[in-house]
């Protein structure tokens, strides 16, 4: 390998070797952690009880509290000899993850009809004529601004939050999937008809199968907006959930709990994204993208 020259950095054709590439990819993470530590140490020098940038012990306490202690509003009091697992099962992070996760999964399930609708809009001219303009218009509406209406229609419980997510994400998703459906070559549809397929064979067994991997990819891109809407909903009115906890903790600057929560949410999203990607690769070996 040739010696490193500083100009390699701006050379499109220069490739760092594996080790260097790995190290480079960690660099920004390390810088971030370093900056955080720096700030934290400085602030703690001024005020040993600083909460804005908790130090390692505070964070450890925060993590311990979220993982092994019940939420403050719960009645559950762990027995003194309760096992770690027992404590974990009743911890606030589990409680919050379960309730946020349920909302998330229900909205995810509600996106399935949206995708099916999109398939019909893209494929059946009559559906396209009926729905496309409306969805295009609806997509431009900022879902959060509809919140008072959502409260009236769905109450302030689960359904208004789920509706917020679905209304926020579904139109974009529908438009996206409609585009994919329209991009399926006409030849494929014609060919299917010459093979004596009926309309539903074409819709579900030819077109849908072909766009499914792209739909999953689109879903992966939409995970973050979904989480965003979920958080908005939970911060506005909730009695449990990940964002509820963050909102509550913010009142007394409980960054020692908020930071682990934020990282946990990031990890969850990453895990869902990864599993969708693997699922896609497993289910659709023919799909290259």
């Amino acid at each position: 390998m040739a010696a490193f020259s500083p100009f390699d950095i701006v050379d499109i054709q220069a490739r760092p070797n594996r080790l260097v590439a790995q190290a480079l990819s960690c660099l920004l993470f390390l810088i971030c952690i370093g900056l955080y530590m720096q700030t934290s140490i400085n602030r703690h020098k001024e005020n040993p009880e600083d909460r804005v940038t908790p130090n390692a012990t505070q964070l450890a306490n925060g993590i311990h509290a979220s993982v092994f202690e019940p939420a403050e509003e719960d009645d559950y009091i762990p027995a003194d000899d309760a096992s770690k697992w027992e404590r974990f099962k009743h911890s606030m992070i589990v409680k919050d993850t379960v309730s946020s996760g349920r909302r998330f999964l229900i909205s995810l399930a509600l996106l399935i009809p949206a995708v099916v609708l999109a398939l019909h809009i893209g494929l059946f001219p009559w559906f396209g004529a009926g729905f496309l303009r409306f969805v295009l218009f609806f997509d431009k509406i900022v879902a959060l601004s509809l919140l008072p209406i959502l409260f009236i229609v769905f109450g302030i419980d689960e359904w208004s939050k789920i509706a917020l997510i679905v209304i926020g994400v579904a139109p974009t998703m529908i438009l996206d999937v409609t585009q994919m459906v329209k991009a399926v070559p006409q030849e494929q549809i014609v060919k299917a008809f010459t093979l004596d397929a009926n309309n539903f064979d074409v819709a579900y067994r030819v077109v849908f199968r072909q766009v499914l991997p792209q739909v999953i990819n689109s879903l992966r891109l939409n995970l973050k907006p979904m989480m965003l809407f979920l958080f908005a909903g939970e911060m506005i009115a909730a009695s449990d959930g990940l964002a509820y906890r963050i909102a509550i903790m913010r009142r007394h600057m409980g960054m020692d709990v908020i930071l682990p929560y934020v990282l946990w949410v990031a990890f969850l999203l990453f895990a869902i994204d990864l599993s969708l990607r693997l699922l896609n690769r497993r289910m659709h070996p023919w799909f290259q993208a």
């Binding site: 070559p185 030849e187 494929q188 014609v190 060919k191 299917a192 010459t194 093979l195 004596d196 397929a197 009926n198 539903f200 064979d201 579900y204 067994r205 030819v206 199968r209 072909q210 659709h284 023919w286 799909f287």
Partner: peptide, 30 residues
């Protein structure tokens, strides 16, 4: 029957499934 220049096969099916697709759908729909 139709054989276009491009996109003549269903990319999501194996060769065998592409061949059997016609008779299968024509006899048993979705």
């Amino acid at each position: 029957g139709y054989v276009p220049q491009k996109y003549s096969l269903f990319p999501d099916r194996t060769v065998l499934d592409n061949l059997t697709m016609g008779p299968e759908t024509s006899k048993y729909h979705i």
